[in-house]
Design a protein around this nucleic acid. Structure first.
Lengths: 234, 234
DNA sequence: CAGTGGTCTAGACCACCCC
DNA sequence: GGGTGGTCTAGACCACTGA
């Protein structure tokens, strides 16, 4: 039920800041309790797809009213590899990893993991570890570029996901912070151990809110800065 | 109850990924129902302060405690100070600064500069230096909170700009990278010299593309991570 | 197996909004 | 007032974990 509601909102069913059905209406039409509806709404509010005003109702976040969220679109992320190469350091393989499995909101502890280096002008400036849910990982296991150590590609993983698996990425959640280079990262990036790195985690979700990919990247700050532009729409 | 629990987690009561009490235990010790405990946990999970594994338990997120905030629109930037305090370290004053003047695309070398500390839960987690064009700086010079060293406020500069000067901020350009703490920053933030910091530069523009404010912030990465959510426009 | 969190139901009272 | 969401209670069943 929460899936369906989320999908409806993402598909623009209630665009223009329209009012959504009330909790009572939804609980009746879906045949669930009001608490279940509330639980679904909590997630939508947390993701800022919807806002609620006590005593008035629930409204879809509209791009037309007030401020627009983000410019710095998912398509921009997908274009990241256009002028950079991706080299396979650790091929895609099955792995038990509690933390990444949790962040992908999986039921199990099993993920598929691969590690890459991003190359620009002949030098590595970023190390990326990609975690995939088991079903996604299995399907991408057939892609030669991901299973051959040392292979290089200009694909992005999300590009592959959309093209080969036909899934649609609707959302990306990013978290940006600072990390220190450990032995492995220092060797991969050619910096000293302890060197400060820009760490960017990206969680890609489909329209139902299922995690499709978790990418943990460490950038050399000397060669990369993250730029984003926020715009107000009038 | 949710407040107390959150405070305990933030204060590192369960640091090192320790296991938290179970829902049953908490509901008994606080004298509330299990659903109330669950509701409190949902917020902690949403803020990534805690993660849960079905059948195993609830665990504090490893070493990273402190302040997590989702920023995805200009509105969010303006609301940043809602639950943080801003302390004036250097009051607003006229200054010659070629670099910041250039970034504000001014014709002259004169800017107005002020320096702040962002406080959360009694500790500084961010140092911000704000640069304003001369005309803007002059008009804000009348604001007492900005000219008194040691004063604290919950305003944001851009909030003041929009309210007092009636200007409209149409765009914000951000650049995120890593910087090392110099003497001044180390002292202000209470870290060692050379400590890696998350540096976020924000340039606010009006609809004509004129620079209204340049804010250079250095965050303690242990207490702050920058989160943003991108959504595909349909 | 007992214990964990995940999900759900069916009620309740409240503060708030708007008519 | 009647309708909205905010909060809470007291149960229930499930899938999964770990010993």
């Amino acid at each position: 039920m929460s899936r369906e509601l989320r999908a409806k909102v993402l598909q623009g069913e209630y665009a223009d800041g329209q009012q959504l059905p009330t909790e009572a209406e939804l609980s009746q039409s879906y045949g669930v309790s009001r608490q279940t509806v509330r639980r679904a709404f909590q997630d939508l509010v947390a993701d800022e797809l919807v806002y609620r005003v006590p005593g008035r109702g629930t409204f879809a976040r509209s791009p037309r009213h007030g401020y627009v969220r983000q410019i710095g679109s998912i398509d921009d992320l997908m274009g990241l590899s256009e002028d950079t190469g991706l080299e396979v350091v650790d091929p895609l393989q099955r792995q038990v990893d509690l933390i990444s499995a949790g962040r992908l909101r999986l039921g199990s502890d099993v993920v598929y993991r691969a590690r890459f280096l991003r190359i620009h002008d002949g030098s590595a400036f970023c190390s990326t570890t990609v975690y995939l849910p088991p079903d996604v990982g299995r399907q991408l296991g057939a892609v030669e570029e991901l299973t051959t150590r040392g292979a290089t590609t200009t694909f992005t993983i999300i590009g592959l996901l959309e093209k080969r698996l036909g899934v649609q990425i609707a959302e990306a959640q990013q978290s940006i912070t600072v990390a220190s280079a450990d032995d492995e990262l220092a060797q991969a990036l050619g910096c000293r151990v302890g060197h400060p790195l820009l760490r960017i985690d990206r969680l890609y979700l489909n329209g139902n809110g299922d995690g499709l990919e978790l990418a943990v990247s460490h950038f050399l700050p000397e060669q990369y800065s993250y730029r984003i532009s926020l715009r107000r729409s009038t």
